[in-house]
Amino acid sequence: MTNPYSGGNDDFPRYEPTDHPEDRPNYGQLPSYDGSHEENTQGYAGYQAGQRPYTGKVSAVDAVSWAFRTVFGNWKLWILGALALFALSIVLVVVAAGINAAGDSGTGQATAGSLVSQLISTVLSLVLSLVVMRLALFQIDDSRTGWGYLFKNVRWWQPLVIMLVIGAVSMFIAFSVVGGTVTGLLGDAENLTEEEATAAVLSVMGIMGVLLVISFFIQPLFSLMQWFAADGDSVGDAVKNGFQAGKNNYGQMLLLAILNFFIIIGGFLLLGIGLIVAYPVTLLAQAHMFRQCAERNTIPQV
């Protein structure tokens, strides 16, 4: 009997293609981080469409638990990296102090040297923030993430735009609410009695305290936006998706903020040494929480 699939050659049967993962052209490839949309994955290119999305219940506790395990499991990157950042910050402080001392005019006004040092420090902080965000997302996608991933496929301007806009809006609101009181206090300080000056300062501190409380309760609505941008979304999509994800998971986002606050406090209480663990833990917890809320991959490759 002739084999209909042999093409005239009856020596070996021919097997038709299957839908098994190993038969797909992209089987075995690493995740793509170039921001291009692959296959039919809508609005997301942080991992290949073949990887399984997160379908579980969003949990801040799970995010923090994973972050602690990861920091200690990959300590050569995260703990040593935190130590390197701490050492770099000390160097920057020393250099800035030297520049300020050399350019001190004695008038109490900011010098060109001090402004340049502040600008360099700000730019470097923003660059490092974007780098470590990308590194945290790499860690979720690949458990083998190490120092070789530094500065790899970092999305620069999209999350930076969102960070700058959020910062500018926050400063504008704070200045609009508190600025007038502070300006009046400073402008008429010589004519105020000690009791009036104390009352004015306390009122400013009270207003700032109220603003901090309000910002804490609304931060879940915008804190995920920069993560969406860092993970491949456009600025517009990141704003829209970040707001929606924050609103849908508002309670767990607040819980994560509370947990991260106590983790940082614990790091300070351990003479500051605990911050080399607290900082990467809170960063990784935010990244993992973002992936949960976005319903994207949370399972690292082994």
Rank of each mutant, 00 (worst) to 15 (best):
V210I: 10
A238R: 03
P17I: 02
G206R: 03
L85N: 15
G148K: 03
L255M: 15
A189M: 13
S129T: 13
L92R: 11
F172E: 07
L211H: 09
R155T: 04
V165Y: 08
L270T: 09
G236P: 02
S215G: 13
L80H: 10
T55A: 06
A63E: 06
G103S: 14
E196M: 14
Q252G: 12
R24N: 08
F222Y: 13
S176C: 06
A112S: 04
N297R: 03
G43A: 05
S234R: 11
R291V: 00
G148Q: 05
L83N: 03
T2I: 11
W227V: 03
S176K: 09
V169N: 07
F262H: 11
V94C: 05
I140P: 06
P159K: 11
G35I: 01
P17M: 15
A96H: 09
S89R: 07
L254M: 13
L270G: 04
F12P: 04
N249Q: 07
P300N: 07
F86A: 15
L284Q: 04
V61R: 12
T55D: 01
I140T: 04
G180D: 08
V281D: 09
E16C: 05
V210W: 08
R155C: 02
G98Q: 09
V61F: 04
V239A: 00
L124Q: 03
S203I: 00
S114H: 06
G184P: 01
G35E: 01
S125T: 13
G266H: 15
R24S: 11
I276S: 02
W75I: 06
V132M: 15
N26H: 10
L192A: 12
G28I: 02
I90V: 09
R291W: 00
L255T: 04
L283A: 14
L259M: 14
P53I: 05
G242Y: 05
Q292E: 04
L77W: 02
P280T: 14
E190K: 12
A230S: 15
P17G: 09
V169T: 03
T70F: 00
I120Y: 05
S176P: 00
K76L: 10
Q51E: 01
W66F: 14
P17L: 14
